[in-house]
Design a binder for these strands. Structure first.
Length: 547
RNA sequence: GCCCCCGUAGCUCAGUGGCAGAGCAUCGGACUUCUAAUCCGUUGGUCGCAGGUUCGAGUCCUGCCGGGGGUGCCA
């Protein structure tokens, strides 16, 4: 800026935003409004009069540097500076995007940082219900977003293979097994009544026959726990694969006790005087690290470490043993208290709380024909993830689960979802992709190929709108990563598909008499197809060539 | 009691301090299509209520109201 245009004043950070409405530029900057007061205060002190925001804007845009992407800048009503992208520059982006869409849209936010996303981690005592599918969708898409933003990502499933619920699970399975041989026994009162337990028992029978009936009393529980766990984990992996979710690592809680991690953690906390005895239990001085006056039970009076102890040891393992720079846990809101306390508690190991981010999402209320289905273990009635995926498909289920913000509760009516699955917006998006593929196929058949020779012919409003929309994807990704909020993706993808379809409706691509224009538009179609595929890929959805 | 989340169009929900949006539903148009799973248009909102901060608040702050969750030697 030329000295003397404006007096010296405190300069705020300059930000631009995307105006919501057309006619306000591609980007808009409110700087004149933000600085007008400070500028005038200085001018007043100098007895040099006053400037209106509009005048300041005029002064500022005269000093904008030349840039090939910038067409023009203008000052608008109260005092905004509206910036317009150059159409020629926009058109050239079609080539850059179709060359390497992933590279074009990728932002290196992570710089190789090692991050773990731990998600689902449902108790391994039965099939995943549809609420767990939300966790799977959020966690998996967060992982995809981070992978595509320069992070080194590991997906982990934490197996709670320790504790009372596993014992109950084992004993229920044992009774179901016995029942298969006509024995008149009942499952434990607090057991798992679901029919799936009978299926597990049948599988055990198929493999082992009646040989397990003769197990010594003290071997029944560990043996059935082991057999059941194996079956459940295999089933979980299958179910998750149906939803296009694959874990890099399945981490056993029990292993923390087998490999000495818990013992080391215990010794360290003891040494730091962070543990004390009270009421027959061992307590952790949480208040020392988190504040407040509440401590946490570490080892229960029955000698069993509590969940807080396991979580401490588990995160010690993540950060100290495995060396992750950043860990993200995807938890349902019913763990909100633990989510608030655990990061602070890690200070006991010298781990900065900021390195653990817990993404909380609200529950999915399941309904069938308008009536709520209680997922109580007692009733044994659940809507499984598999059931839903078989009915509506993984892509539609993902779209539905992802399109709500994490904090919003979802009402899911399976009957409604099945009835409406064909009008799921995900098909609209995929259709736009398949249509692009079709055009490119047809063009190839007529010996027409995308070319960057005459991209300057892309001047229609619909063409430029499509280019602008594609340019927005990196911003959407950055926003989604910054807020760990995957729901921005489905909304953007629908928007992109809409913009594409609008272009398709207005601009005929293949016009043999106009070879130059056709080749330019084919380039645009190719870029749009790649961008749609990239967006769908970030959401873990398929991008079909034909529909 | 204290803490957290939600409250935006008929329905389901977006909205990073800058003139209230999308999908579905409604209503009216367009079909011998480069894939009609389409397009164009229409209807529809005192953004739960009341204050405050700000040039500007759906967005930030405070207090209410309504719904949900948390506050275990369960995880």
């Amino acid at each position: 800026m030329k000295k003397g245009d404006l007096p010296k004043f405190p300069m705020p950070p300059v930000t631009v935003s995307r105006p919501r409405r057309q006619g306000q530029g591609d980007y808009s900057c409110a700087l004149p409004l933000q600085i007008v007061r400070d500028v005038n205060n200085v001018l007043k002190a100098q007895q040099a009069g006053k400037l209106a925001p509009m005048q300041i804007g005029e002064i500022l845009i005269k000093r904008l540097p030349d840039a090939d992407f910038l067409d023009r800048a203008e000052v608008a009503k109260p005092g905004f500076i509206n910036l317009y992208l150059s159409p020629a520059w926009l058109a050239r982006q079609a080539h850059a995007i179709s060359q390497d869409a992933a590279g074009y849209h990728r932002m290196d936010l992570g710089r190789g940082k090692k991050v773990q996303v731990e998600f689902v981690s449902a108790n391994p005592t039965g099939p995943l219900h549809f609420g767990g599918a939300r966790n799977a969708a959020i966690g998996d898409v967060l992982a995809r977003l981070l992978e595509n933003s320069g992070y080194q990502v590991q997906r982990e499933y934490y197996i709670n293979d320790r504790g009372a619920q596993m014992d109950t699970f084992a004993m229920t399975l044992w009774r179901r097994y016995q029942q298969l041989f006509g024995m008149d026994v009942e499952i434990p009162a607090d057991g798992y009544p679901g029919a799936y337990m009978i299926e597990y028992a049948k599988k055990i029978k198929a493999e082992h026959g009646d040989s397990l009936l003769a197990l010594p009393e003290d071997e029944i529980r560990p043996r059935f726990r082991e057999l059941g766990l194996k079956l459940v984990l295999a089933e979980l992996a299958d179910d998750l694969a149906m939803m296009n979710v694959v874990f890099d690592n399945w981490f056993s809680e029990q292993s923390l006790y087998n490999d000495g991690t818990f013992a080391r953690v215990y010794a360290r906390l003891r040494e730091q005087d962070d543990l004390y005895e009270k009421d027959g239990a061992v307590w952790f001085r949480a208040s020392k690290y988190i504040g407040g006056d509440r401590d946490e039970v570490f080892v229960r009076s029955n000698g069993e470490p509590g969940y807080f102890a396991s979580d401490m040891a588990y995160h010690y393992h993540k950060f100290i043993v495995r060396g992750f720079d950043w860990v993200i846990n995807v938890w349902a809101v019913d763990h909100q208290n633990q989510a608030k306390r655990l990061p602070g508690a890690l200070k006991a190991f010298g781990i900065e709380p900021e390195r653990l981010t817990i993404v909380l999402y609200d529950l999915v209320t399941l309904k069938r024909g308008g009536k709520e289905v209680k997922i109580s273990k007692r009733s044994g009635e659940i809507i499984t993830m598999r059931e839903v995926l078989e009915e509506v498909g993984a892509d539609a289920a993902r779209y539905f689960l992802l399109s709500h913000s994490n904090e919003a509760r979802i009402d899911f009516d399976i009957d409604l979802a099945v009835a409406q699955s064909s009008e799921n917006p995900v098909y609209y998006i995929q259709y736009a992709h398949a249509r692009s593929a079709s055009i490119l196929r047809k063009a190839a058949g007529a010996s027409l190929a995308p070319s960057a020779e005459h991209l300057d012919l892309l001047t229609c409003p619909e063409e430029l709108a499509l280019l602008r929309k594609m340019l927005q994807l990196p911003e959407v990704v950055v926003n989604a990563v910054e807020h760990l909020a995957p729901h921005h993706l489905p909304h953007y993808a629908l928007d992109l598909a809409k913009t594409y379809t609008n272009f398709y409706g207005h601009c005929r691509v293949i016009v043999p008499e106009q070879k130059d224009l056709t080749e330019a538009r084919l380039m645009l179609v190719q870029a749009a197809k790649a961008t749609l595929a990239y967006a769908l890929g970030l959401m873990g959805m398929s991008a079909p060539e034909v529909m």
